[in-house]
Simulated assay, not measured.
Amino acid sequence: MKTYSTATALRAAISAARRAGKTVAFVPTMGNLHEGHIELVRRARREADVVVVSIFINPLQFSASEDLSTYPRTLSADKEKLFAEGVQFLFQPPVEEIYPEGMDSHSKVSVPAISEKHCGASRPGHFTGVATIVNKLFNIVQPDVAVFGEKDFQQLSVIRKMARDLCMPINIIGVATARAEDGLALSSRNGYLSEEQRQIAPVLHRILQETREAIACDYDSYSVLEAHAEQVLRDAGFEPDYFNICDARSLGEVSPDTEEVVILAAAKLGSTRLIDNVTLTMNPSADWGMLAAN
């Protein structure tokens, strides 16, 4: 595995691989890699000849009140995991390489509407930061395939829309959420949980599953289900941010034409913000690439 810190050096390596007839898959990460990330890498290896992974903690997607300075950094362990999985290229740029003139004067990419609800409502500017860095990394790597986790469902939706709207010739692949045995979605932020909080955390996935089962049994009073779920979370010790039942394509309200429902949830447990989701097919004949419940 070769590590590059500049776009110029990485592009040269990728260009050489392409001249040899190789296809390229890309997995962008912020490091502190866990089994969920490794599943993305394994999928990327199945999709292309060369796998490029980036590790960059993007300051543009963090607000002043968020945990940029304390975000876990485990570079040595990350490199060992990527090497063991056969990754060919690691891109690990410093902030100055990505934002040479600073973030305030850097061009930004905005994906309207779909970015403004759910996590976007409680984290203003977050998805502009995400779209900007992913767009920039796509331009550097120019992959055939890019792989993302479905745990960050709204993020994946934003990236897919950006790629469609900007005519990017990249196949965006979502990979089902990796979970611990008790159902907790694997996340770099799980390491912030105390031992007691870690025992409570699986309640988030449980109430998502229960809500999905209620909808599958034709219970369609969605506002009642959302309110009940938020109360369950409060009773367990969470501080809910949102618990929303929506159309999986638009991330807006469910309508009679909705083919797939996604239930999105975000809640704080202590100081740790957890997110998760589950999906449910409403129309068995639907086939638009994101139908698997996770």
Score class of each variant (00 low, 15 high):
residue 64 A to K: 12
residue 144 D to N: 14
residue 294 N to K: 08
residue 140 I to D: 03
residue 12 A to K: 15
residue 137 L to T: 08
residue 231 Q to K: 08
residue 284 P to W: 00
residue 38 I to G: 05
residue 46 R to T: 14
residue 274 L to C: 10
residue 179 R to Q: 03
residue 30 M to D: 07
residue 244 N to H: 12
residue 211 T to N: 04
residue 273 R to S: 02
residue 30 M to P: 09
residue 226 E to T: 11
residue 143 P to H: 08
residue 67 D to T: 06
residue 117 K to F: 05
residue 42 R to Y: 00
residue 25 A to T: 12
residue 39 E to D: 15
residue 193 L to K: 05
residue 263 I to T: 06
residue 64 A to Y: 09
residue 33 L to C: 09
residue 147 V to N: 06
residue 207 I to Y: 06
residue 30 M to W: 10
residue 71 Y to S: 05
residue 218 D to N: 15
residue 71 Y to R: 05
residue 243 F to K: 13
residue 41 V to S: 07
residue 264 L to P: 01
residue 193 L to H: 05
residue 17 A to W: 03
residue 5 S to K: 11
residue 53 V to S: 11
residue 7 A to V: 00
residue 283 N to M: 04
residue 36 G to N: 02
residue 233 L to M: 05
residue 30 M to L: 09
residue 31 G to T: 07
residue 202 P to S: 01
residue 283 N to R: 13
residue 44 A to H: 00
residue 19 R to S: 13
residue 92 Q to P: 00
residue 202 P to W: 02
residue 89 F to N: 00
residue 255 S to L: 12
residue 162 M to K: 14
residue 241 D to H: 03
residue 1 M to Q: 04
residue 8 T to E: 14
residue 214 A to E: 10
residue 44 A to Y: 01
residue 149 G to Q: 03
residue 237 G to I: 02
residue 47 E to W: 02
residue 80 E to P: 00
residue 190 N to R: 04
residue 162 M to W: 14
residue 243 F to T: 12
residue 13 A to Q: 01
residue 75 L to Q: 14
residue 293 A to H: 11
residue 13 A to D: 03
residue 23 T to W: 04
residue 56 F to A: 01
